[in-house]
Computed example of a mutant assay.
Amino acid sequence: MAAPMSECRRRLESMDPSVLPGGAAPYGNFPDYSHFHPPEGRVRLLPPALLSQLFPNQHRRPLLGLDVGCNSGELSIALYRHLLGLQDNRSSPEGSMAETDLRLLCCDIDNELIERAKQRSPFPASVSYVTLDIMDPNTREPLLHSYLSKFGHSTFDICFCMSVTMWIHLNHGDSGLVTFLSCLASKCTYLLVEPQPWKCYRAAARRLRKLGRNDFDHFRSLTITGDMAEKITEILTKDCAMELVCCFGSTNWDRRLLLFKSSRLNTCGD
């Protein structure tokens, strides 16, 4: 006999890390986030040959990627493996058939998650983790500049922003979201974004209230609302000199993967 609808809803909510103790994580820094939104749900949407399609003449130098809001690193590693065609049982890219030298700089605001990512990383030489508040330019700019300078670059080849935009928006308001997207657009040739839909905003605010926490400072004053994938596309294309290249589809949790290209930078790098 099927469970009543209320019971089904209760079971689903019990699987959501954000309703567990500590789940009010105001910046999306949930522990064990990947257990609830597995990396495979995203990477399966991306072509395995994506890097060679985007950068067909990049064998002379490493490709640089920036992963913003990497949590404890599971998705970063899954992206790295997938884009280089590495099997799960590979512990390093040496000896693989991948011709591309990909270096990832992964950042998150939560130091505990970053430390966990460092301890678990199977690719310490190629995938780096750093604690960073991406909205703090006094910390962000020297850190990113220092990393890029090591490779003689001024920008990243590709940036990943996976389920981060909502947390920036809730904590920094409409202007903060625009500033964030403008910043990313200025830092990379390609930008892969997974925006949270508006229903996730309402759910995040509701969870805070259930836990007796104050509401997000900006939630009730936001004017950029509705179809957030559409709104973010509009900001990036109209205000940030980017063009939409492709939508790779939606995850099982109803989030689209959108790839943008900078119209200010050429894809041949620096």
Rank of each mutant, 00 (worst) to 15 (best):
T189R: 12
T189Q: 13
T189V: 15
T189E: 07
L191T: 08
L191D: 04
L191N: 06
L192K: 07
L192W: 05
V193C: 10
V193W: 01
V193E: 07
E194L: 08
E194M: 12
P195S: 06
Q196V: 03
Q196R: 13
P197A: 10
W198T: 03
W198Q: 10
W198N: 02
K199E: 07
K199A: 12
K199G: 09
K199S: 15
C200F: 14
C200N: 13
C200D: 14
Y201M: 10
R202A: 11
R202H: 11
A203K: 13
A203G: 09
A205E: 15
A205G: 03
A205R: 13
R206H: 13
R207E: 12
L208A: 09
L208R: 15
K210S: 13
K210L: 14
L211F: 12
R213W: 02
N214H: 07
D215N: 12
F216K: 04
F216M: 05
D217G: 10
D217W: 12
D217H: 10
H218R: 08
F219A: 04
S221F: 03
S221G: 09
S221N: 09
L222H: 08
T225Q: 12
D227N: 14
D227V: 01
M228Y: 05
E230L: 14
E230S: 14
E230K: 15
K231I: 01
K231C: 13
K231F: 08
I232L: 12
I232F: 01
I232Q: 13
T233E: 06
T233S: 11
E234V: 01
E234N: 09
E234F: 02
I235T: 01
I235M: 01
L236H: 04
L236K: 05
T237M: 03
T237S: 03
K238D: 05
D239I: 02
C240G: 00
C240E: 01
M242K: 05
E243S: 13
E243K: 14
E243P: 05
E243V: 12
L244R: 10
L244V: 03
L244H: 10
L244S: 07
V245P: 08
C246S: 14
C246D: 15
F248C: 06
F248M: 06
G249A: 04
G249P: 07
S250F: 05
